[in-house]
Design a protein around this nucleic acid. Structure first.
Lengths: 339, 339
DNA sequence: CTGTTAGCGCATTCAA
DNA sequence: TTGAATGCGCTAACAG
């Protein structure tokens, strides 16, 4: 069903049909209605490829995310989708599974698909070959969650947030506070959060035990259990994301520890699911949906001006410490337990 | 960066460049390498829109899902993505938020985008206007999770699975078994699962209390709490999906009930997260990733033959009762509690 | 093995 | 206000 067919059936030229759709004001109300009626009857849909080819714009935004199995990114994507539709854009989401080669492949795919701009969560902005490509291609983009002074980013102050969380735990009487993180090398957020942990511990004058580093994708509850052995176990765990926090709680249970009585657990991300858990997850909540929304708005705004986004357009969104039930005061006998 | 530029730079015709990419065997190794080198130097990417317009195929599959906030569909999408890549297809996922108008809008968008085929989870195959459109458009499609004798579907026997689950609960000594479901009208799966519940109860000679129906999207833990009031409360809950099961466990906790000691909870879906929870979710596990994979394979196979998929190609995949910790024998005093 | 050329469906000049 | 004609980038005849 092409514009030709509609034009023929309506007894007008293809140009008129095109105008009736794109500039309704530029045709007589009579002809417009005629065209619309015929189009409807014929089930006509403007061909997106042809339109993109002709106009050199697709009104589509590419979205590159690590995974949708982490609700954080699913929530963000929903924010992106909503804002994109509102701005008259479609989205084309792709996941990378935290793999660099996939990151590059994704950007390549999206570029070939003529997206007008990109929103991406990359492993590490400093070293991302995908970003390099984008820069040279001159395609507007914005990073979400990532934080880097050379790129336009929409993020939160992960480092400060974690440092604050550590301070809270210290105020609750905790001394042995450990951090659980996904593979540091695979995520600049993990690195920032780890720095925040180190800073918080240092400020409290506490020794930071070695980072408990586990894979992002697999469950690794067993590995976590190993870290909760009685003699050396921490009384509080700061987790680099909510999924890890959930697994840590599981590991505690398997190790015979009660949360929060024997072990406090703090997450990071603020996934909605966390509030429905028992114990409800105590976490540093990011405005995931808003991160998506703002990313779109920044991008669309820049594109409207025919510009690419610059680093100085970066946005730092507020986070919030969300009090749940997975965190409590250190018990007296905990000190005994670890000594 | 167009094929023209590459051709000029390499000193060959555009046809040769095209061949070098699409039929490497049809050009001399020398020219192929030349073209490849030049293309790389120029950062050339074949324009997908132009290619689609010309060939009338996009090598893209549209995917219509209710939401990605339910990990079930995120897991399925991952299966789809993996299989699609393996088959040389890209995917274009869209969510509908369980809304019919969005369902139709999504199909429209994808059709305009020239997808070669669609995988969709619709509200109700019988009444879906979107499906109607697809049929008349003659575009190949397959339904995932939905089950209907007039359409090609990849699904599990939800009804039988829930009936079996009820039987298991009865064997554990439960008599007051209630069902928690999302809005029935918004999902044929919910309807099938409810029928399974009714059948299971009937077969056990038990009275089925009224369905506890809550919204799909909101949390509705409060509403669930209301259903757990002492005098009439069930001793076991069969939930139409894992998210509802999680919320039910939360509601139990808020109501002062222990799971599984005071209340058994069975979910449906088998989301990976469920295994990391405490208590680990007892659930009817669907092979979410496989549902996605098989959907793609069926579709790709049909498209390769230039056909649309017919209802008789439908696949019924095996489900499994996954034993967790949210389910236990009915306690003696439970009968006292409800009497 | 390689080049020339037409046309996919559409938006957009330029004329009328 | 409308129509005719051009070309976006590419692939697929067809010719050489």
């Amino acid at each position: 069903m092409s514009i030709q067919a509609v034009a023929a059936q309506a007894g007008v030229s293809v140009a008129t049909v095109s105008r009736a759709f794109n500039f309704p004001d530029k045709v007589t109300p009579a002809t417009r209605e005629l065209v619309e009626r015929v189009a409807r009857e014929l089930n006509y849909l403007p061909n997106a490829s042809a339109r993109t080819l002709r106009t050199q714009r697709s009104r589509t935004l590419g979205v590159v995310l690590p995974t949708l199995l982490n609700p954080t990114f699913a929530e963000c994507l929903q924010g992106i989708a909503r804002a994109a539709v509102a701005g008259g854009y479609a989205i084309l989401p792709v996941t990378t599974g935290y793999r660099l080669d996939e990151e590059e492949r994704a950007v390549q795919l999206l570029l070939a698909g003529n997206v007008d701009g990109l929103i991406l969560v990359v492993s590490n902005p400093s070293t991302s070959a995908a970003l390099q490509r984008l820069q040279t291609a001159g395609v507007p983009y914005v990073l979400a969650y990532n934080r880097h002074s050379d790129h336009p980013c929409v993020s939160v102050d992960s480092e400060g947030a974690v440092a604050d969380a550590v301070t809270r735990l210290v105020l609750l009487g905790h001394r042995r506070i450990a951090m659980v993180s996904g593979t540091l090398a695979a995520s600049d957020r993990a690195q920032q959060r780890y720095r925040g942990y180190q800073r918080g511990m240092a400020e409290a004058g506490l020794d930071a035990p070695p980072l408990i580093e586990v894979p992002f994708v697999e469950t690794a509850v067993d590995a976590l259990c190993a870290e909760l052995r009685p003699r050396t176990r921490p009384t509080a765990l700061v987790c680099s994301n909510d999924l890890l926090a959930i697994r840590s709680i599981r590991a505690a249970h398997l190790s015979g520890l009660a949360v929060p009585d024997d072990l406090s657990v703090v997450g990071f991300d603020g996934i909605a699911l966390g509030e429905d858990l028992t114990p409800a997850l105590t976490t540093i909540a990011q405005p995931n949906s808003d991160i998506g929304r703002h990313s779109v708005e920044l991008l669309v705004q820049a594109m409207a001006g025919g510009r690419t986004l610059q680093a100085d357009a970066s946005l730092l969104l507020p986070h919030a410490f969300r009090d749940g039930e997975s965190c409590a005061s250190a018990r007296e006998d905990n000190d005994a337990a670890v000594s």
